[in-house]
Amino acid sequence: MTTRRPHRRSALPGTAAVAALALFATACGSLTTDDSAGEAQTHTVEEGFHVGLLLPELQTARYEAFDKPYFEEALENLCPNCELSYANADQDVDEQQTQAQAMLTSGVDVLVLGAVDSEAAAGTVNEARGQGVPVVAYDRLAQGGVDMYVSFDNFRVGQVQAEALLGALDQAGTAGDGQIVMINGSPTDPNAGDFKAGAHEIFEGQVEIGQEFDTPDWSPDEANSQMEGAITSLGLDEIVGVYAANDGMAAGVISALRSAGVSVADLPPVTGQDAELHGIQRIVAGEQYMTVYKAIRPEAEIAAAMAVSLATGDDLDAGEYTVTEVEDAGGEKVSAVLLDPVAVTVDDIADTVVSDGFYTVEQICTDDYADFDFCKEAL
């Protein structure tokens, strides 16, 4: 577990981004908790307070490369005197519980939790609430009655993936010629269930699903094995498309297809999610059809603003974003901000991940990809 100690600066930065963030939380106030929580605490931005950030895994590159630094930057902008403790559980439920207990013992004043297992996380949430520590559910809706939640519209993510895949099948003229394979995410991640449900709503009556798998831990290796099994069961000629729930698993799927003798030119369209750099490069190379881009910076910034709001007791003003209400598996209602996902094919890379500064053209167009059309035009 790493801890960033606070440091003092003479003034808050004056950038537009920080000004926008200021809409989310004001400078002072007191924490208000419900009757089931422990003793309420009072905190101010001027004095600072202690925030704990727990992220779930390393299989997906986004958490270390983007979520953590974006959150750290946003918290420092909103609360320069705050202290941040950070840990990543690397997909280990017990390890995350240990990390959370260590943070609570060290005296964190608010916890931002990206749960490994949302149901198992209820114990951590209840322990935090018992100590008067509010919890922000980050990216995945932890159970147990969290105070606030920020993520993407995960049902819509699945719809976007499925719509893109159907569009690719229509364009290729193969929509009615065969079956698709669905490689869904981890059964312990409620987001995966939402992606799956959204995709099924779009696929229903439009395409035949030949085989479908839930993939423990979002494992690319497991996705590779599942795809090998689907190829054996259905036959290569019968598979016209693959719904892969994220980019890591898409890599496993594509590897299985290539090992089975499918050329790049003959690969069926394969979906993805998270706009990982290798996923974008596979799209450039024509191996992967699309990914879902989720603008992680605003998600991390909103999470930081929620943490400040809860620690100071001030209302959350979501500015341009809509504050809604979601219900967790236990029936608890939670105030939430759900961001919109964006489909990215090769035609959209410049206007999404590049224009947003997520990646530069140089990062995408390394020597192995410089001769593909996107890079020839962009360099």
Score class of each variant (00 low, 15 high):
158 G>I: 00
184 N>C: 04
228 E>I: 13
171 Q>E: 10
224 N>M: 14
218 W>D: 15
116 V>Y: 04
211 Q>M: 07
210 G>W: 12
127 E>R: 11
165 L>T: 05
198 G>W: 11
121 A>P: 00
226 Q>E: 03
229 G>N: 14
176 G>M: 02
229 G>F: 04
133 V>N: 03
122 A>V: 02
120 A>E: 01
193 G>R: 14
175 A>T: 03
201 E>H: 07
143 Q>K: 09
195 F>P: 02
151 S>H: 05
202 I>G: 00
206 Q>W: 08
180 I>N: 12
124 T>G: 08
188 T>N: 13
182 M>N: 03
161 Q>D: 07
206 Q>T: 05
136 V>A: 15
116 V>S: 04
132 G>Q: 05
202 I>L: 01
171 Q>L: 06
151 S>C: 14
211 Q>F: 13
117 D>S: 06
204 E>Q: 13
219 S>P: 06
162 A>N: 01
126 N>R: 15
144 G>S: 03
126 N>F: 09
137 A>G: 12
204 E>H: 09
154 N>W: 07
202 I>S: 00
186 S>H: 08
137 A>S: 10
199 A>G: 15
210 G>P: 02
153 D>W: 14
226 Q>A: 13
170 D>M: 02
120 A>L: 04
174 T>S: 05
111 L>R: 02
185 G>T: 09
170 D>P: 04
185 G>E: 11
209 I>W: 15
156 R>M: 12
233 S>T: 11
211 Q>W: 04
122 A>I: 05
120 A>G: 01
132 G>F: 06
166 L>I: 13
205 G>F: 05
152 F>T: 06
197 A>L: 09
136 V>H: 14
205 G>W: 00
112 V>M: 13
219 S>G: 07
203 F>W: 06
224 N>E: 08
